[in-house]
């Protein structure tokens, strides 16, 4: 039997007194693409942040297994080294740190963890060029400060570029489509599709169905008030697009 990459069981998380995740269950297998949709404020970014290890959130109940390991006891960097990647909804601007310097450190850190030798400067540049081409990133970006002064679209492409460089087992994309025009959306989606492999999985968080025309999901979930209240095939996304979220909210309220 194939082991899931990610298994979330009854995950509860809070900020201060406020419970934001209220029992999330989700199982992701290698090769799959899961979409998580839901109205603003449902807890989608919180789920992504808890998985990536953001310390603002306190997990009060439940467990998360990543490749069978207890994810929640790992530091953010160890999660990354184990193969988890989060494409941020709002990538952070880091003045003075070039994309190249940062990525070289990150990649060699991951390679060390995987028992591989560090890449030398030439190999690294070669890899950067190759992967940048996937998302149409100009090599001139390599020497610019990370995300500083990048347009919204450039920041999102830069996230996917990092994904391509770091080759994670599981990539969580948090609203990577928001703020993108249709051309940029295509570029990002093509990049992601090129990175799909039988043993890599994606969790694509999005507010709009649009992205899912390009990155076709195996399963679509609706997260609402900190719970997955409905799961289905990609047709569910179309239905949500047509009918909005209200009918699902009503269903959920009835069940609750």
């Amino acid at each position: 039997m194939i082991q899931p990459i990610l298994e979330i069981r009854n995950l509860h998380a809070r900020v201060g007194e406020r419970e934001i995740l209220r029992g999330v269950d989700l199982t992701v297998y290698p090769g799959q693409v899961h979409a998580i949709m839901g109205p603003n404020g449902s807890g989608k970014s919180t789920l992504a942040a808890v998985l990536a290890g953001r310390e603002d959130y306190q997990v009060t109940e439940g467990e998360v297994l990543f490749d069978g390991k207890n994810l929640l006891e790992l530091s953010p960097e160890d999660r990354a080294r184990e193969g988890l990647f989060l494409a941020f909804q709002y990538p952070v601007e880091i003045p003075g740190v070039s994309t190249a310097t940062f990525l070289k450190t990150a990649l060699n850190e991951l390679r060390k963890h995987r028992g591989q030798s560090p890449l030398d400067a030439m190999e690294f540049m070669e890899l950067m060029r190759e992967r940048a081409a996937l998302v149409n990133i100009d090599p001139a970006f390599f020497s610019r400060s990370l995300n500083e002064g990048f347009s919204g679209g450039e920041k999102k492409r830069n996230e996917i570029f990092q994904l391509a460089m770091l080759e994670p087992r599981l990539a969580i994309l948090d609203e990577t489509d928001s703020g993108l025009d249709i051309d940029a959306l295509r570029i990002v989606a093509d990049g992601v599709n090129a990175l799909r492999t039988p043993d890599r999985a994606f969790v694509v968080i999005t507010h709009y169905q649009r992205l899912l025309n390009y990155i076709v999901p195996d399963i679509v979930h609706v997260l609402y008030r900190g719970r997955i209240i409905k799961s289905g095939t990609k047709e569910l996304a179309l239905e949500l697009e047509a009918k909005g979220y209200d009918w699902i909210k009503d269903e959920a309220e009835v069940e609750a």
Binding site: A52, E55, A80, F102, L103
Partner: peptide, 13 residues
């Protein structure tokens, strides 16, 4: 925020 971002890419604190 910057520290967290870098750590999610595998850099130690």
């Amino acid at each position: 925020e910057a520290l967290f971002y870098l750590r999610t890419r595998g850099l130690s604190t």
